[in-house]
Design a protein around this nucleic acid. Structure first.
Lengths: 222, 222
DNA sequence: CCTACAACCGCATATTTATGCTAGTTATGG
DNA sequence: CCATAACTAGCATAAATATGCGGTTGTAGG
């Protein structure tokens, strides 16, 4: 399994924050860490899609309050063009109203600006390795909401026999994910996603993603 | 805000674990902490309901693998009779299959048995104060699942005003038709279908046909 | 051992979709 | 009369998807 990047490669980080102090502060800070490489800083998220597409950062530190595009919106845009990029939200306050929006947009981490520099550094390392840094308060909020919304969504009897993996892929499709996003999520190559969709289409007798999703919903395969 | 209990009251803790070493180890450990008071230890969860009802612990450390009733089942039972009790699951491995079951049952914390004693102590303090201790891996698992279920739900309300023609196009999409098929059916050019989809995506805040169909179904726009 | 199958990956190509820009017509309300 | 909206349409380009072909690996059963 070669999913973990070699340690020799520093974690490429981009910072979006309208405060020059924050941008320069973090940039200086990360100079002390060999494994973290700030490859760009921006005062706003105007060209976020273009930026992440060309820079391909591993981690984005995203301020939540920026002029123009908000950090939440920027997160959604960034994750859309580069699902493999991890976003850590920088929030001024422990403003829980934004937590869920941030998560929904695709953020993986949620940090307070007043956090210890240690925390920020470890948060970057954690997200870069597929983890999720959050403090106890944020975790609790998320957990409670998660539990509340967790109703019995178990899959029922099916007339078609999709393999486990095929079902996973189909479920991702039913969440509106693109092949790229599915590949990232399931940690497989995009060509493998294609292979699975081929089999799924064959079994479900369809010719497009939309049809597959419709059949999946109608037959309650998901 | 008076949500935090007075410090003078130690946190009442009960331990369920079939290993005497664990039970005694933690009991001895917590003797060093004035704010943690182990009021009972049990090798299995047979009388968990009776126990929590009478002892009223603030926190339960719950082994996941116990003879008879599992830690998951015991958690559900405990939370049923005493919802104010917080449960921290002790798991042997980083067994993610149990995480969601544990959360659904009502557990707030999820610890590995190999954790530092520091971590266990702070976990107890955190849950007792309404937080949720979890490591980055568990947090990530939860977050991903949460996001998946949330993106489905939260956007159900909102009234979007699609024009008549846009609704027609969307309906065709919901029948799995391609642009070409839609154009033929509605007797318009394929570029016109494109124009309509553009507006539809804008109004529905989506970026693909599949997403549009999913939103249409969810909001019952069709 | 052989066979089947699930899961994985790759490349190539045709088609479809997404999105930017532009722009004509026809209503409709201010 | 003007602005706005809806509907129409075209061109261009990038991205995503659909599909055909090929392959490796590992595991379960005969």
């Amino acid at each position: 399994m070669e999913t973990i990047p070699p340690l020799s490669q520093p974690i490429k980080v981009i910072i979006f924050d309208d405060s020059p102090d924050i941008r320069e502060g973090f940039t200086s800070l990360f100079k002390f860490y060999d494994d973290i490489d700030v490859i760009g800083t921006y005062p706003d998220a105007r060209n976020v899609e273009q930026i992440v597409k060309t820079m391909k950062p591993k981690v984005i530190l995203m301020d939540i309050d920026m002029p123009g595009i908000t950090g939440i919106e920027a997160t959604a845009l960034a994750k859309h063009v580069a699902p493999e990029t991890e976003v850590v939200i920088l929030s001024q306050l422990n403003d829980d109203s934004n937590i869920f929006e941030a998560i929904k947009a695709g953020a993986t981490g949620y940090l307070l600006k007043g956090s210890d520099t240690d925390k920020v550094v470890s948060a970057i390392r954690i997200v870069a390795n597929g983890g999720s840094p959050m403090n106890a308060f944020v975790a609790r909020q998320t957990l409670d909401s998660f539990r509340r919304s967790m109703t019995q969504i178990s899959s029922s009897e099916q007339t078609v026999s999709l393999s486990d993996r095929e079902k996973e892929v189909l479920e991702c499709m039913c969440e509106g994910m693109t092949y790229k996003e599915i590949a990232t999520k399931l940690n497989i190559a995009i060509d493998t996603v294609r292979s699975h969709t081929r089999k799924i289409y064959e079994k479900l007798q369809v010719r497009s993603k939309t049809e597959a999703v419709l059949v999946a919903i109608r037959k309650k395969l998901i």
